[in-house]
Design a binder for these strands. Structure first.
Lengths: 353, 353
DNA sequence: CTGTTAGCGCGTTCAG
DNA sequence: CTGAACGCGCTAACAG
């Protein structure tokens, strides 16, 4: 009650008429034997004073924070869902997760967040592999803090022990083959430079998918950042001459939706003339007109693997299921990059059946 | 270098051959005069050792954290954007913002986050006015921590000094009147119970909008949670008999999009037979087919007002523009709830012109 | 200009 | 079971 500030453990101790050690024992539910009477007195004092433990003091003293940090490109869609999953999973192990957005890949903001997390002495870090350079990350994180990357490619193993990646390349190949198998002799990839590594993976997969038995007469890589959405469509149509239908595989559902809008505008029929496949399986992909064929993001699985690996690296005991799951993936891993398959969800923006 | 742990201020001091006070002065760029030579030595030592300040120790000692917390219903759409804006604005005042999602209104998760923020001794809190009960909040936050609510109605002034709300009621009235002025003699509100306060506001505005010069022959409140999306459409059509067009004002764009999909499914023409107005002006509202008439969320303005008020409450000096803006809103405030107008964006899901 | 020292709130021995 | 004492890393007077 002194100074009308927050009560401390000392206040509680004197209020309950015990020592601070006892209060600490009660708070942390230690195994040391205490009389129920004592426990009750302490708990009452805590309630009466509205005592709330100061985690800064706790962590300082314990020399560990039980806090983890997650850095996202932004909060929207898949990333937000991933964050929520991850938070819940870490919580089961007694860790608290703080989530930060790099505000759509602003390197300065991203840097600030990572620096702050490190200053807060988080026990571990999870980050997308995007905005800031690997060098900066190296500098920042150094040897100290365990770092797991998700959706990042080509990270040296001295900075991260593991990257948990969605297999965009494979999905992209699948998309191309789907187009080829469904009458498209002209196929395009509509990308986003800004997607960086994730964009490169899609390109790689796209090109690989072209090498099947059925071949495309026309194909090209287009970028929505350079050409704009309308520009992408125009260029695709121009390159295709009178080949129909054409297939456009897009960086994400959002871009696919915009292309559909562009088609409506010009009276181009989807999927008769233009077929589209997106990525992310966003909510609107199902409800758009026509609905968008896309790839479902295995958010939960990805979060489980990230959690499992980081927890194990930090010396936590995994439950049997988690351990088994993690190991099965680690076994078939190449380098220190682990790949997760994605499933295509066929809808009406492609010819189906 | 001892124990291969993180270097401390003591390590830096001895490495540089100065006292820890000097190091502290350098780190915090205090106004005390120091020889450039000393500063250089300290900075070199810092770089050499890879020293990074421990904010827990700093905050403990300073008895303030310079940290703020934000609790969101979830990370998606408007909320995520709001969070990013807020983070940037607070940063200008030297505060760091940690954002948490209640995982789509899970009260337990929400509670956990608030409790954790309080244990971290954040200097202030911003929260949506939704999942947890006011009573719990009362308990949790008590007198100690400044709290600003956004989009929350009916909060007692002893727990929050200010609620910064989007004027959903006004927008809803406007939506209804738009329908009436554009030939709809049957109008409906398609809500979401889960929206709670925000849903109530829409209902209130919807009903108020019915009381203009032009009247509706049929109107009703429908809930997508109870009836499902298809159910809402069916019920609206049933109640309307052969009145056409009908107008459906929806809780948000997402629901509007689903209703459009439902219309496509049944061959119902939008906007000829059914007109729709959504809310949030999400990215897909513009690109959907037909595009969705919606209300733009003044995220930046709302974030500015929240920032301004909280900063002032915490004794920070606002710049002139911010102060002026804040005051102009505070002056026309009723109670301690401040209302922000939203602008309707007319698109093709309504008859326009 | 620089060094000393007493806290900040809590965890952790270790003798009682 | 309990209480005293030290340490965590840093800030903030206060001396020098």
């Amino acid at each position: 009650m002194k100074k009308s500030k927050q009560a401390t453990i000392v206040d509680v101790a004197s209020e309950a008429g015990v020592s601070i050690a006892t209060v600490s024992n009660v708070i942390n539910r230690r195994k040391v034997p205490m009389s129920p009477e004592t426990v009750r007195k302490v708990e009452e004092a805590i309630a009466r004073l509205g005592y709330r433990r100061n985690v800064m003091a706790t962590n300082l003293s314990r020399r560990r924070s039980n806090e983890l940090g997650l850095v996202l490109p932004h909060f929207g869609g898949y990333y937000g869902r991933f964050a929520e999953k991850l938070e819940r999973k870490f919580h089961r192990y007694g860790y608290h997760l703080s989530v930060f957005s790099a505000a759509d890949m602003d390197p300065e903001v991203e840097m600030r967040h990572i620096e702050h997390l490190l200053q807060r002495r988080v026990d571990g870090l999870v980050s997308h592999g995007l905005a800031i350079s690997m060098h900066s990350t190296q500098q920042l994180v150094g040897e100290g803090t365990p770092l797991v990357i998700f959706n990042g490619w080509g990270w040296p193993s001295d900075i991260t022990k593991l990257a948990v990646n969605l297999d965009f390349a494979k999905a992209s190949s699948e998309a191309v083959r789907y187009f080829l198998a469904h009458g498209c002799r002209a196929v395009f990839y509509a990308g986003r430079r800004k997607g960086m590594g994730a964009n490169d993976q899609r390109i790689e997969g796209f090109l690989a998918g072209l090498d099947g038995e059925t071949r495309a007469d026309v194909h090209a890589l287009l970028d929505a950042g350079d050409l704009g959405v309308a520009g992408v469509l125009e260029e695709a149509l121009r390159l295709s001459g009178d080949i129909r239908p054409i297939g456009i595989y897009t960086f994400n559902d959002s871009l696919a939706l915009e292309l559909i809008a562009e088609c409506h505008e010009r009276g181009i029929r989807v999927p008769d003339e233009v077929q589209l496949i997106g990525m992310d399986n966003e909510h609107f992909a199902k409800a758009s007109y026509p609905s968008i064929t896309s790839f479902e993001m295995p958010v939960d699985l990805q979060a489980s693997l990230v959690t499992g690996f980081l927890m194990r690296q930090m010396g936590e005991e995994l439950d049997e299921m988690s351990a088994e799951l993690l190991d099965s993936y680690l076994n078939q891993m190449q380098g220190h990059e682990l790949l997760i398959d994605m499933e295509m969800v066929v809808r009406n923006s492609t010819q189906n059946g």
